[in-house]
Design a protein around this nucleic acid. Sequence first.
DNA 1: AAGCTGACTATGG
DNA 2: GCCATAGCCAGCT
Length: 118
Amino acid sequence: MKRKSKNSQNKNKDFFEKVYEITKMIPPGRVTTYGAIAKLIGSPSSSRLVGLALKYSLRLKEYIPAHRVVNRNGLLTGKHSFGDPNIMQQLLENEGIKVENNKVVNFKELFWDPYLHL
DNA sequence: AAGCTGACTATGG
DNA sequence: GCCATAGCCAGCT
């Protein structure tokens, strides 16, 4: 059956969904990076979309531990998207992650590699 | 409907 | 060693 072209809006929503799925995998007290997620999905250069997806994930009814995702420097670049800049840091500290100067302390050690989960 | 934006990252000057 | 630029791609306005 050929489908009408009106369904041409079949866009790759998988990207966002995968981002959500991977983000949910992140264990408490751990953090990962946009690049790692993007690479895991298959588009290492699409790290922006990861952040974008996480931003929109905040609107979702489902809870996504978006605060566990930081940039490759361990910097809380997305803290401002939580409504108030302190929320993200509070969430991280609540899980035992130390944040100093908007940066995750011992980021390298706390980094959770999604590949290890596969 | 078309263009802008963005929670990035790597590279070059 | 810091600032500027380019690539990336889809959802949002």
